[in-house]
Structures are given as C-alpha cells and as structure tokens.
Computed example of a mutant assay.
Amino acid sequence: MKRLDPFLMCLIGAVLLASFLPCPVVWQPWLSRLTSLLIMLMFFFQGAKLKRRALLDSVKNWRLQGCTLLITFAVFPLLGAGMYWLAYRLSSSGFLGPDLWAGMLFLCCLPSTIQSSIALTSMARGNVPAAICAATVSNILGILITPLLCGLFFDHGSSGGSGLQTILNVAEELLLPFILGQCVQRWLGPVVHRHKFLISCSDRGSIIVLVYSAFSAAVLQGLWHRIPLILLAGVGVADALLLALALGLTYLLGRMMGQSIEDDITLQFCGSKKALTSGVTMASVIFPGSAGIIVLPLMIFHQLQLFVCTVIARHYAQRPQQPHET
C-alpha cells in the first residue's frame, strides 16, 4: 500500500494548526499580503524553470495533447455539472450543500497536475515527453481557462467580482509573474535548475502557508460548525466517483483512438488528475473569502488520485516489454 504523501500530511498539519490556532483577525491583512507575494514568486520561478524547447518538441502529437486538454477542461466540468444536477434532483440539499458543491465544481475546472502525472507515467512506462508537454500546457492554459469556467459555474458575488475582473486578478498574480520568469529564463533558468530542491521546498512551503491562511479565515467564519464528518465522508464518495469516471473515460477514449499503449497511459494519467498546487493558489485569488472550504474536495481528491493511480501504474509496469522499449 502506498504511504501517505508527506506534502499532503504537511497540508493536513496546516489545516489542524489553523483549526486550533487560526491567524488573529488583526493579522489577517498582513497574512493576505504575504500569501499574494508567495503566489507571485512561485509562478515567477515556474516561468524561469520551464524550458520552451522541450515543450515545443512534444506539442507535435496534437491528437494526444488535444484529447488531454478536452478531458481536463471540458469533460471534467461536464461530469461535475452532471453530478451536481443529479444530486439536487435526488435531494433538495444536494447531499453536500452549496459550499462543498462549489468546491467540487471548482475541482472540475482545474488543470492537470504536473509532478505526479509525469512520475506515474514514467512508472507505468508511458510516453513521458508527451506527459511533460500535456501537464505543462494544461497548467499554463489553466491560468486563463479555470477562471472562465468558474465564471460559468458561479455567480459574480461568489467568485469575488465579475468574470473579467477574476481573469484580471488571476493574470496579475499568476500569469504576469510566469511571463516575467520566462523573460529572464536565459539567465535565471540555470540557477533554478541547479537548486531544484530549494525551489521545490519554497513552492511547497508557500502552499502550506496558503492553506493555513485560507483555513484560518474559514475557521474564524465557523467552518467546522458548518461541515460535520458525515459531509466530509460524502465528499470522499463524490471524489471517488468523479475519479472513477475520469479514469474510465480516458481509458476508453485511448482505446477508441487506436494509439499506442504508451500514449494511452499518458492520456489516462494526465487527463484524470487535478493540480493541488495550482488549485490552492487559484482558490485564494478567485475565492478570496472562502478558499478554505473550497479546497477541501480538492485535498481529498488529491490523495485519492495518488493512491489509485499508483496501483494502476504498477499494473501497467508489469506488462511485457515491447521491442521499441529495449
């Protein structure tokens, strides 16, 4: 059995700390400024780290890349909308309530995760260069597409302003630093690659601070009085159903396309995942007053996707080696 992700355990620790020792109201504005700065630094270093040549080389497989984006930004939102519609048809409360359903729909709007998609594709002996391209392009496009999708799902008041204002806020805090990082990549890129471990620690530390900030605000607003354990269990069931549907659809689509098993693996792992890091950062921008409850379904989905996809990757890895893999 796969052990729990240490990063996720740190996030759970941040949630527990915020639950018992939330940031006082008087310090909230300073913590908000700090989180905004950390978000901008994170995407600046992401821009400085990304190699444009590797990205361009893998875009050539347009069918695989297009299908991955289709699953991520079209099929997932449709699945979320369908589950939402069905839940409210069966119960007036939708079983989970409006706040957690907002988190479920936000989860469906997110880009694919990068690190675990690539790692699991490699473990399963899939098309790793295509996975790098698919996950990277998904995250870049997600900076713009995710706010647009959120504008379709949520009313203006729940997303912190108009759809255009939301896009401008995301562009200012995420896209602009990323572009600046790309502009200085020639000089800063080698430095970032020499210190990958420190940059990774910085990124993850930033996310932990963001989670603490989001949950501190939510706890002060009575988060745990609004969400009993039975609702958290319901979120787990909904996440598991969503993941099962995504894995099944990506598998069937790969078979229908008649592509290689390596490309099937890439489509399945890149198309079925959602990014925890991007999700937490985007939630803090798109839902400034309620990010804590919004990211709960995402945190549960993250651990589910790691466990289930690791089991699937190990199954793929046991297949006989093909001549072109030698």
Rank of each mutant, 00 (worst) to 15 (best):
N61C: 04
G66C: 09
T68K: 06
F43G: 01
Q65V: 08
D99K: 00
G47A: 06
T68M: 15
T72P: 10
M42G: 02
K60Y: 08
P98Q: 06
S93G: 04
Y88I: 01
M83A: 15
R52G: 05
G97Y: 14
L90Q: 12
V59W: 14
Y84M: 02
T72K: 02
F73W: 14
P77G: 11
R63W: 11
A54E: 14
A54K: 06
I71Q: 14
S93I: 02
A54H: 10
D57W: 06
L96F: 07
S58L: 07
V75E: 12
G94W: 10
P98I: 01
L96Q: 04
M83R: 00
R53S: 08
S91C: 15
I71H: 12
L100A: 02
S91T: 08
G80E: 09
Y88P: 01
G103C: 09
K60A: 07
Y84S: 04
Y88E: 04
R52P: 00
P98V: 00
K60W: 11
L100I: 05
G82N: 10
L100H: 05
A48Q: 05
K49L: 06
G94H: 05
G80P: 04
F44D: 10
F45M: 13
A81W: 13
M42K: 02
S58R: 07
G97K: 00
L78I: 11
Y84P: 02
Y88F: 12
Q65I: 08
